[in-house]
């Protein structure tokens, strides 16, 4: 564990250098502990797989005070327990077909049937390790090792919005159309980012637990939400 300066207006508390669910649990615990202190001058707290970065105004919150608070917060170890008892959010996903053009390839690469891949995904508790890359883009941990596939050799120039995808041992859902090299398995009808909701513009936040529920194309049409930016 170490504290690193990201310029003079941000400090990073680093728990490790790899993708690590245990490190992420400690990150979330530290985030919660720091938040509870309600320090004046903090503008943003950004958790990642392995670190917590605090953006702040050093003219309002002295570096030494924040350092001390972060080192204390780093000792918190409660998040893992909290996460295990958290109620999962259900995320409907329509797998395969035009929504999941890589499902067959992923099934073949892992030596399972498409149905087995879907059943396995729906049995998992996926946890939101961080949001990044794009507004509202969740990096999800909790995949079994056999679903740890490298990114596609040639990234797509346009991954459709709402695609559910996996790569590099993680899952993700694209809130926006964007270039991307992950394997597309399906699509959710949910709106993932809504700027009109200032309280919670992104549907998912770091620390959330998600459970995937397979739906049919008809159910997808019925559940489809219409985000402003679709």
């Amino acid at each position: 564990m170490k504290l690193i300066e990201l310029g003079d207006g941000a400090l990073t508390l680093e728990f490790g250098e790899r993708i690590d669910p245990d490190a992420n649990a400690r990150v979330m615990a530290a985030r919660d502990a720091l938040q509870a202190l309600g320090l004046d001058g903090i503008t943003d707290m950004v958790p990642t797989w392995r670190s917590l970065t605090v953006h702040f105004d050093p003219l309002r919150l002295p570096h030494d005070r924040l350092r001390q608070a972060l080192l204390q917060a780093a000792e918190q170890k409660s998040a893992l327990a909290i996460r295990r008892s958290a109620t999962p959010t259900i995320v409907p996903v329509c797998f395969g077909g035009e929504f999941g053009p890589d499902l067959a390839e992923v099934a073949a690469a892992t030596g399972r049937s498409e149905g087995e891949v879907i059943t396995a995904l729906c049995a998992l508790d996926l946890h939101v390790a961080l949001i990044g890359f794009l507004p509202g883009f969740p990096y999800l941990g909790g995949l079994p090792d056999w679903l740890d596939l490298p990114r596609r050799a040639t990234p797509r120039t346009a991954v459709p919005a709402n695609s559910f995808a996996i790569a590099g041992g993680q899952a993700a859902i694209y809130p926006w159309q964007s270039p991307g090299g992950w394997h597309l398995l399906g699509r959710t009808p949910l709106t993932l980012f809504d700027p009109a909701n200032a309280e919670r513009p992104a549907r998912f936040a770091p620390g959330d637990v998600l459970r995937i529920e397979a739906i049919s194309p008809d159910e997808f049409q019925g559940l489809r939400e219409h985000p402003r930016h679709a």
């Binding site: 950004v46 507004p135 883009f137 513009p201 992104a202």
Partner: peptide, 11 residues
């Protein structure tokens, strides 16, 4: 736009 960077929203 501070306060939303944990949700991937740039400053």
């Amino acid at each position: 736009r501070p306060g939303y960077r944990h949700l991937g929203v740039p400053l």
